[in-house]
């Protein structure tokens, strides 16, 4: 019988590993819009980690800031800067 304490830690570990892959993609992708999406997926993963770490106060701010406001300002910048990263 699986205890839910194990489950919490299991989810934490898996989520952290997932977040690494999305960080990597967000840094590597040439298309900036896709990078924004990847970084927001990564933020959602971190939000779940905060939730599992029993930090509701932080989730309240963190979700608002990094799922809501960072994408807006990043998309705003991408809209004005151009969507694709140009390498010289």
């Amino acid at each position: 019988m699986m205890d839910y304490v194990d489950l919490v830690f299991l989810m934490m570990g898996i989520t952290a590993v997932i977040s690494v892959s999305f960080t990597f993609l967000a840094v590597k992708t040439k298309d900036l819009m896709h990078a924004v999406i990847f970084s927001s997926v990564q933020s959602i993963a971190y939000a779940l980690v905060y939730f599992l770490l029993m930090a509701p106060d932080i989730v309240l701010v963190y979700v608002a800031v990094s799922v809501g406001i960072y994408p807006l300002i990043l998309i705003l910048v991408v809209k004005r800067v151009g969507r694709f990263e140009v390498t010289a």
């Binding site: 106060d57 309240l60 701010v61 608002a64 809501g68 406001i69």
Partner: peptide
């Protein structure tokens, strides 16, 4: 859980 900044961050979604 909650507070001034948390509330403000949630509320600011509305104007944005």
């Amino acid at each position: 859980p909650g507070g001034g900044f948390q509330g403000g961050a949630i509320a600011s979604v509305a104007p944005l």
